[in-house]
Amino acid sequence: MEDYKFLFKIVLVGNAGVGKTCLVRRFTQGLFPPGQGATIGVDFMIKTVEVDGDKIKLQIWDTAGQERFRSITQSYYRSAHALILVYDISCQPTFDCLPDWLREIQEYANCKVLKILVGNKTDRDDREIPTQIGEEFAKQHDMYFLETSAKEAENVERLFYEIAAELIDQARRKDGTSAVNKNSMDAIGLGSLGTKASQNSCCSGFNSNSNQCTS
């Protein structure tokens, strides 16, 4: 067995063409392919990161934009630790669909799952959704918020590292001790994230103590 302290499942959802696969490839392979074929069904990538000296394995499930939970991937949402909901800041319809996605999440995902709203493609100069609108939407729905660019590698590392840090934090808080191991992972996902997010004045803020994202 590989040596890692935590394993987290992260699932990406959002409309087709918002850049889910590109975010994942940028993070796991450091690539931004000029063209990326549509994801069919679901894709799967793995990356091990280090946070506070602990090895964390991230299992990233990248879903097809056209796929709805019911059809295929339901079981993956159920066991997900974090859900990244992605829209394209240069495409209003992808933002308009967010309530639909949230409804699906509510129905099929663990209610305590860590939810992150991501506005992708900040490199585009034809922005249609102002940052503030995204932030407010996230705040309303108890989600973290971040704007990224897979193309420019902006905030991509940060996104995943902060998710990892937050999940570790949840796990430790739940456990009441820092000696959390793989066996007590059932603790994760039950943290009191909801209240925490709404107290947070800045929606885009993850835990301030997790600055590992620069590595």
Partner: peptide, 11 residues
């Protein structure tokens, strides 16, 4: 019952 999360299979 016991695991909300599992690593694919229970070792």
């Amino acid at each position: 019952e016991s695991h909300v999360i599992m690593d694919g299979y229970a070792k």
